[in-house]
Design a protein around this nucleic acid. Structure first.
Lengths: 194, 194
DNA sequence: CTGTTTTCTTGATATTTATCAACAGCATTA
DNA sequence: TAATGCTGTTGATAAATATCAAGAAAACAG
């Protein structure tokens, strides 16, 4: 639970009182996911959010041809869940599963509400997270519109080196919106560069 | 100013008191932009946010070859500004200009803070906006990764018919990340469909 | 360790989309 | 009205990327 406290204090730039920490503790429960286990399946409404203590997950959709398209990776200190589904209480279009054995702290949106209302640090943390997510997704969109496959890979390489080491190459390709073969060739050529 | 009050009440699902309305009024100023006039130029820190009463703007970047890439359209009841720039007080990578003569209400981030802190409806409105923006950008990212140019156009056509009528076709192409020629051909073939 | 499955690589080919170039249609303005 | 510029169209060609197929390498399970 300490991980979460530290994260909230860091993002909010505020200190949590003991009482606040207790409130938070009682809202969250530890949960473990084995590798390949689902956190959310397409068609279900996402009712839980998770904060990763250890491990890695991905969120992806599956198209008619059965191809997977990864929208989001999460590792330690990142949040997991489909905000589109839980905000509007709508069945999710995505799956979330564990890429490694994963430990997280989970809560429901119902339990999260009072925390946001009564703990200023939590409210601020959420707001900061929302802002950062939006900025990150705007950046990604910009990359997607303006760059070639190779430039997107280089950009990803520069922005998220930790993720590169953590997820198999085929998943990175899916995240970047290119085929695994193309990514393999890009990486081969990369060494040749100046 | 009434437009803004109605918008805040709608998004927050709360009512604004007269006093709150006065606070808001004193923080915002009307501003007009002529067609083609800049609201923000690349390299400047974005210090203002605008709420469009009438008109249309776009936010875009310009690459080394001089090609413009549109990241965002805004029309009536939408907000204008570069959150990446104002959140981190960093020079913007984007330009924002008016596509039509535009009337907006503008404020600074400094003036916005107290409103958010003291007017619950404003805080809630911002939070709702952030959520919606994030969900919209996640959707767009998904479209970008998953779909062909033609599918992305159809998706846009279904999601934002108002924008289609409002912005020239070349700008739509830029927003979708395809060349104007390709969009022209897609539209030609569209009629042939079942 | 050894077989089995998953992931990555490589080549050949097909498809999608961009680029370049020319021109037509319209609107704006001088 | 003539001139100018902006927007969209079309054709020819080139470049980027996907797909298909096969095999190599690495990871995993018993």
């Amino acid at each position: 639970m300490e991980h979460l406290f530290r994260y909230a204090e860091k993002l909010s730039d505020m200190t949590l009182s003991e009482k606040e920490k207790e409130m938070i503790s009682s809202a969250f429960k530890p949960k473990k996911l084995r590798k390949r286990q689902y956190f959310l399946q397409e068609g279900d409404v996402c009712k839980f959010v998770g904060f990763i203590i250890k491990g890695a997950t991905r969120m992806y959709s599956v198209d008619q041809k059965g191809n997977e398209h990864i929208l989001r990776f999460s590792i330690e200190e990142w949040w997991v869940g489909d905000s589109e589904s839980y905000t509007d209480l709508v069945p999710s279009k995505y799956n979330i599963d564990a890429v490694e054995d994963t430990e997280m702290l989970v809560t429901t949106f119902a339990l999260m509400q009072p925390l946001m209302a009564e703990i200023p640090a939590i409210a601020k943390m959420i707001r900061t997270m929302d802002q950062r997510s939006y900025i990150a997704s705007q950046r990604r969109m910009h990359a997607s519109i303006t760059m070639t496959a190779e430039e997107r890979y280089d950009d990803f390489y520069g922005s998220y080196p930790q993720l590169l080491q953590r997820f198999p190459q085929g998943m990175i390709a899916s995240y970047l919106g290119i085929s695994p073969e193309t990514l393999s060739r890009i990486r081969k050529n990369a060494g040749v560069k100046p």
